[in-house]
């Protein structure tokens, strides 16, 4: 049974080798505390969806253990499944069914009686702005509505652990932000959330802890704050007023001239931007605006994945 000091998810030495001998997971360890908002990041094919697939029983693990609120899925998967709600990457509901029927049917699979299921379906469809469409064939919903319908479906049995596999992929900015607000509220109410995403801004905004997975191994598992601390440089794009033909040289600040009005400069964390601006100013260069080249987390992510690639290539060379 669930107790307050148990992790929402404990994964130990989880490995998965597919029939074609592809090693999707090479013995990963992962722990997610109760109430956490956890990001699982990784490039395509890193093993994120395989991990989620194992947690929700769509993928059979090769070895290792997975515990959901202390329940080993090998011992009582049925009980463990009661705690988990899954929002998959692809639309996987019957497009001919109405949203209300999809939710009530899903609740039935968890043994929830129709009157309670109907009440909850109405609650979640309203919260996710879908109530007006509750009685239309779901194939007529927009992409964003279909994503929200999948979130409502995953919540219908009120799981303690919600796993979302790229829930905002292909969703416009306004809708994405409203989904973030909704997920933050669900998390505040006590639901543990695990999120995979390609939008690193999303992970930085929502999540407290993060694991970066690449080629079936966890390359980083820490808090977002600790991760950001590891960032030792940031790349800025400077828009300059006048047209220049040659790239300015500033000692200690590697600069690239990307076009006649734009400079790209990598600034070490321990160096001052004021110094850079004054040195450029001395060369007669006037800066009109400045922005980050990429999200801070994105720079770290790329750095870690590249390091992992180098490491793998190195070990293959050996």
């Amino acid at each position: 049974m669930k107790s307050s000091n148990q992790n929402a998810l404990s994964i130990a030495s989880l490995a998965k080798t597919y029939d074609n001998n592809f090693k999707a997971l090479k013995g990963i360890d992962l722990e997610v505390s109760q109430g956490d908002f956890f990001a699982l990041l990784g490039p395509n094919g890193a093993g994120k969806s395989t991990t989620i697939g194992v947690i929700c029983s769509l993928v059979k693990k090769t070895s290792g253990t997975v515990k959901v609120f202390g329940i080993d899925i090998d011992e009582d998967f049925s009980a463990a499944k009661q705690y988990v709600g899954v929002v998959p990457q692809e639309f996987n509901f019957n497009q001919f069914e109405k949203p209300i029927d999809i939710l009530i049917t899903q609740a039935g699979y968890y043994g929830i009686p129709v009157p309670i299921a109907t009440e909850r379906a109405e609650k979640y469809l309203k919260q996710l702005g879908l109530w007006e469409k509750h009685n239309v064939p779901s194939r007529s919903l927009s992409g964003g509505m279909k994503r929200r319908l999948m979130i409502a479906r995953a919540l219908i049995h009120e799981p303690q652990l919600l796993v979302l596999d790229e829930p905002t992929a292909g969703v416009d900015i306004e809708l994405r932000r409203s989904m973030w607000t909704f997920l933050e509220e669900i998390n505040r109410q006590g639901t543990t959330i695990i999120l995979t995403t390609h939008y690193l801004e999303e992970a930085e905004r929502l999540c407290r802890n993060i694991a970066i997975i690449d080629k079936g191994t966890i390359v980083q598992n820490t808090s977002i704050k600790n991760l950001i601390k590891q960032l030792n440089k940031e790349t800025f794009i400077l828009d300059i007023k006048q047209e220049i033909k040659t790239c300015p040289v500033v000692s200690g600040y590697p600069i690239v001239l990307t076009d006649s009005h734009t400079l790209e400069v990598a600034v070490d964390k321990n160096k001052s931007l004021n110094q850079l601006f004054s040195m450029l100013s001395e060369q007669g260069i006037e800066i009109v605006s400045m922005r980050n080249k990429a999200n801070r987390l994105e720079e770290l992510f790329i750095d870690m994945v590249e390091k992992n690639l180098d490491k793998n290539e190195g070990s293959q060379d050996e």
């Binding site: 029983s57 996987n92 043994g111």
Partner: peptide, 13 residues
């Protein structure tokens, strides 16, 4: 359509 997954992820025996 992959909606068999709705059933497979549930605790339905």
């Amino acid at each position: 359509q992959s909606n068999i997954e709705e059933l497979l992820v549930s605790p339905t025996p």
